[in-house]
Amino acid sequence: MKLLVIEDDRATADYVANGLRQEGHVVDHVVDGREALGQAMSGGYDALVVDRMLPGLDGLSLVKALRAAKVTTPVIFLTTVGGVDDRIEGLQAGGDDYLVKPFAFGELSARIQALARRPAAAIQESVLTAGNLSMDLLRRKVTRAGQEIDLLPREFALLEHLLRRKGRVQTRTMLLEAVWDISFDPQTNVVETHISRLRAKIDKPFDKELIQTVRGAGYRVDG
């Protein structure tokens, strides 16, 4: 992917850019908000990583300007400004996601992946599969190796979310946002427990594990 990191803090910018390059992305870095505006409009990027406090033009105004100019490149704010209001402001300005510093690199990486791979048109599938597991969305039934598995509604939603994003890492906070609609990080390991309950039902009785733990990042279902 081709990414633009707009960040005035040297240490953070290097860390983010290097990390993303190591994952195989092409990364450009800009310090000034005004400069970033021109580059984002002409550069053909797949996603923008935007700090909110920037010299020249602040991140919020930058994204508003881009959206006004009909630039739809996905934007993730990466900022120390992390209040409830700030997050809402960021999303209302046209940001697609909002990550508060300090952050785990895995979190940023997973969220950038999620942003950049929005499907062009939502194809409505009625059956999702992974390995020998299949999920019938219409009849709300899950079977693995011909064996029907009973899931609670929330377990079903959790598995559906992972299956729809097969092969991509979903972090704990991403799952909380998507499955429970919660935009803060509880201190107790609530997601881990829900995943382990789900695993006990869909993985434990079978030989191959479908839900993989990605160290320092989150979970992924492999096909």
Binding site: R118, A157, R164, A178, V179, D181
Partner: peptide, 10 residues
């Protein structure tokens, strides 16, 4: 209450 947004981030 909104239903859990399953397709917010693809």
């Amino acid at each position: 209450d909104d239903p859990p947004p399953t397709d917010r981030r693809q």
